[in-house]
Design a protein around this nucleic acid. Structure first.
Lengths: 219, 219
DNA sequence: CACATTAGAGAGCAGTGATCTTGCAAGAGT
DNA sequence: ACTCTTGCAAGATCACTGCTCTCTAATGTG
């Protein structure tokens, strides 16, 4: 039953957009709205579950795309495959993408579960660098060195490194972080309409940007 | 009167978040909700006006920050000043930033007015490159050449160049576009909570990223 | 068979955007 | 000074929203 509600809610989300209506979901299911409260404590609760599912669905897609490159030393191919998977998933699930990476709901604070699920995608990307570093393919000296990192940023990177990419030099993590931001920057602009009248060849542009980021990471 | 409504709506937006309520605005003004319909055709109409104002306020701030650098040949200083202004404005007007650069409302299509206002900020950034190119400070060969651009992307860049940065080589515009995306990628992640538990030293990180982008553009 | 649990229905509350009609008050014209 | 027009806001109303409450019907389980 919970699965059925989520299924209907998802397609409702895809059809109508971000503002999901509990009553509409109930109507689609031939139920009365109050009945849904037996399965979800509130609308926000349902949204949270959808967000969690979204992060996991995206994580699955990205992990699969990365794993599809059998030669694990082809770091660039892994990066391009994984980032392409992010874009494909986002295009196929625009409303859910907006839920995950768009403007947050005002009073809403992400529970601990979601941040773990949300970390899956960056972990895949970081793993590409970690593998490359472990195999000696990519080195901390191999890419253009950024201007000296402020100490506070260095500390953040160090902490984050220990959490998601143990053993990776901070400089490499920093490069990866930059590319991660670029990835979602491009994607958000594309999906949120900011690229309208600027770039029409979306897929080509995205691919080219990811190539550029691969260059930046030195993979 | 229209100005008063917008003023109240803005502070309501800042206090409550994205989901602006017409009735709440009316209540704050000691009016009844229907009275607002004399000044705005609908809630979306009011939001559109706020969005337009937002783009213009941001444009004002960015233009002023760029103009504050008296030596126009100090391209890097102009870039850092302008991008810093974007961040400052965004932090001071979080809800409005979300309105401009967050998930769009489903059925909503931006009128022509807004795209002109929205272009002001990228135009300032492009002007930095255009000025530098005209003065011979920055050259198309001066930055790391991206992998060959697909023809369709090249065409988009050419068209965009003619609109906002006449005379600029496509390669330079491409570099600028990349940095523009990075700018808003970093900012959106910061404001939308995606950087929580990853980077705490926000200002330092942002500044460092913009330095890196300046390197990428070769300014 | 009796009991306990569960699923859903229905009414109702307070809030929302939007429309339409009504009333009021100031300003203009004679 | 008296009308009359016009501009503006109030009020009622509709359909919708999230949510709570109570009540009934079905479904096992001992």
């Amino acid at each position: 039953m919970i699965e059925e509600i989520k299924r209907v809610a998802r397609q409702r989300l895809a059809a109508e957009g971000a503002n999901l209506s509990l009553r509409a979901v109930a109507r689609d299911m031939g139920m009365v709205s109050s009945a849904l409260y037996r399965y979800f404590a509130s609308r926000d609760d349902l949204l949270t579950v959808l967000i969690l599912d979204g992060y996991n669905a995206l994580g699955d897609a990205v992990e699969a795309a990365d794993a599809a490159v059998t030669d694990r030393t082809r770091l660039r191919a892994r990066w391009l495959s994984a980032t392409r998977a992010v874009r494909d998933w986002a295009l196929a699930n625009r409303a859910e993408y907006a839920l995950l990476y768009g403007s947050p709901v005002p009073g809403y604070a992400a529970p601990q579960d979601t941040i773990a699920a949300a970390a899956r995608t960056p972990i895949v990307l970081a793993a590409i660098l970690t593998d490359g570093y472990a195999a000696g393919i990519v080195t901390a000296a191999g890419f253009r060195r950024p201007a000296s990192l402020p100490a506070a940023v260095q500390a953040d990177l160090s902490r984050t490194r220990d959490q998601i990419a143990p053993g990776l030099p901070e400089e490499l993590l920093h490069a990866g972080l930059t590319c991660w931001l670029q990835l979602f920057g491009v994607l958000s602009f594309e999906l949120f309409g900011q690229l309208n009248n600027v770039i029409d060849a979306r897929a080509e542009f995205f691919g080219q940007q990811m190539e550029l980021m691969a260059d930046l990471m030195g993979i």
